[in-house]
Amino acid sequence: MQAQTRKVILQVDHLKQYFPVKTNSLFKPKNYVKAVDDVSFKLYEGETLSIVGESGCGKSTTGRAILRLDEPTSGKVHYSGKNILELNKRDMRKLRGDLQVIFQDPFASLNPRQTVKQILNEAMAIQEVVPKKERLERLLELLSYVGLPPESLSRYPHEFSGGQRQRIGIARALAVDPRLIICDEAVSALDVSIQAQILNLLKKLQRQFGLTFLFISHDLSVVRHISDRVMVMYLGKVVEIAEKKSLFDQSFHPYTQALLSSIPVPNPKLNRDRVILKGDIPSPIDPPKGCRFHTRCPFVMDRCKTEEPELREVKANHFVSCHLV
């Protein structure tokens, strides 16, 4: 992986997403949930970058902000030379053909009253990617890509199992010839044997169509399997970003280390030195001053409580935000 020589497909700069919180009083200052707080990263063509972290770390919000499913507070998102966040509605709609998303719960994101044919046709009609005459052929082609039988076209989402529904969701994303797909917890709701099928399918499609994935997940084993690079988030901040191998071989941030050692491993003979964190994740409305992880960090120093660490390169392409390194 020579990341430097590869083409940047998407560049995110200082992305912020603050959600206002209701206050009871007119005179109290407004509070904000700083869901994503100054996040920057690049996405290279054809790679899979994963965002991992626990609930409330801002991983899903980042994905949604890039697609402008929620309008971000500030920042820039460059895609093929243009700042997406400044596009008007018409241009944005055009661009959505390039940027697709697959959600966690396929049942909630598929219209229960539409047949698979209608669902896929609608996507193609909006983006006008295929002339009407060729659509049926294209539909059958899409189904074969995701491994569903041709009869599926006339059936409704509820007639399918969870794994099959996720295949429909993938087919819908593919229908408009995207370049980048954001997979938001795309396999989290599936049983392991089905999860493996979908992960293999995603990998195959990526090779076949040269797709770029932004893979959002809380499951580090899945992330290890699918990613080229991994970005770890905690309370709206990036704490570590690196090539997969570098991160899993030697992580520098204490939070990443704790996260890696918390995962239950299906091997009873494995003896590990566990880092079990104390306490809960602090509220993102009032995140801790200084380093946001300092309230749970086993190696906390005085400096961490006041001074916010910057994201620095500690090894080639391995960035960490921690005062320790």
Binding site: S161, G163, V192, S193, Q195, A196, Q197, L199, N200, K203, L220, S221, V222, R224, H225, I226, F248, L260, I263, V265, P266
Partner: peptide, 23 residues
């Protein structure tokens, strides 16, 4: 066996996951 093989591993790289076909 199928269940254990279909797990993504945290300590090793696999190119493709083994799956259990069908439902």
């Amino acid at each position: 066996k199928g269940l254990l093989n279909s797990l993504p591993r945290i300590y090793e790289d696999q190119d493709e996951l083994a799956t259990i076909e069908g439902n």
